[in-house]
Computed example of a mutant assay.
Amino acid sequence: MVYSHIAFAGGSDNRQMLIVGGVTPRPDPSIGDQEPVAFSYNCDTGQWHQHDLPPENHLSRQAAACAVASHGIAYIWGGKHTNGGSTEKAQPASDMYIIDTINQTNSYSVPLTGPQPPFRYAHKQTIIDDHLIVVLGGFDGMSGNPVSMTDIWVFDTKTSLWLSVNATLDSDNRPANRSSHSQTLMPDGVSIIMYGGYDGYHVYNDVSVLDTQTWAWTVKNTNAAVQGRADVSNLVVTGGTDKRITV
């Protein structure tokens, strides 16, 4: 069982699902709780395959985010390392890691220079123009507070540089800070639609759209009685976690 992992499509014609990172509960906390291998599922053969992580173990992290370009290159950033056991202080992961989903042995960490975003986890990434990765939301890796939706960072895969963008909220100062939401690029290629999320106390059910040409948010009025959810995988809401429930 693995949770807080990354799952994304890749391979030839996107016919594989890859699972990277996450946490595997272990009876002995001294050996750590991070998954030391990656997995892929072939949709054509219906078979799972296991892949050893590189010695540096850049991918052994939880609550990271991934964006995949059209040529099968996956970009993974953020998340946190627990360094074994829930009592350990979480350590942020700041490198940009690249996986060639067609030839998975061709994977490496990108050396970053210049300004970089603060560490964060439970955020989301969407790629536009097939080379600009837009990072939205998440929890701040140092304070643990939800990140403002005005605080946007864009990673250019051609230059390996980060750009900070100050977005504009709507007239009611929405959408609220959050993590664990769902987002996807609209067919127009410039609008990112976002649903749900979690700020540590509240679970949201609103729908918002970010125009990446003007960097302005618009919150949509919906009449659907959809319960707020977090950790949903896409905008066809079929699951997720109601974090208001306590056991």
Rank of each mutant, 00 (worst) to 15 (best):
M96D: 04
M96W: 02
Y97M: 05
Y97P: 00
I99E: 02
T101D: 08
N103L: 03
T105E: 11
T105V: 09
N106S: 11
T113I: 04
P117M: 04
A122R: 06
A122D: 13
H123N: 12
T126R: 00
D129E: 15
D129Y: 14
D129Q: 12
L132H: 14
I133G: 00
V135Q: 03
G138R: 01
F139H: 04
G141N: 08
S143H: 06
S143L: 09
N145D: 12
V147A: 04
M149R: 05
M149V: 08
D151P: 09
D151R: 10
D151K: 11
W153V: 01
W153M: 00
F155R: 00
D156V: 01
W162D: 04
L163V: 03
V165M: 13
N166H: 15
N166D: 13
T168M: 10
T168P: 04
S171A: 14
D172V: 04
N173H: 12
S179M: 05
S180T: 07
H181E: 11
T184N: 13
M186R: 08
P187V: 07
D188T: 13
V190A: 07
M194W: 02
Y195R: 00
G196N: 01
Y198W: 14
D199W: 10
D199V: 00
D199T: 03
G200T: 08
G200K: 07
G200R: 12
Y201R: 10
D206A: 05
D206T: 14
V207A: 04
L210A: 04
D211G: 06
Q213A: 02
Q213T: 08
N221C: 08
T222L: 07
A224P: 02
A225H: 10
V226P: 01
R229D: 04
A230V: 07
D231E: 15
D231M: 14
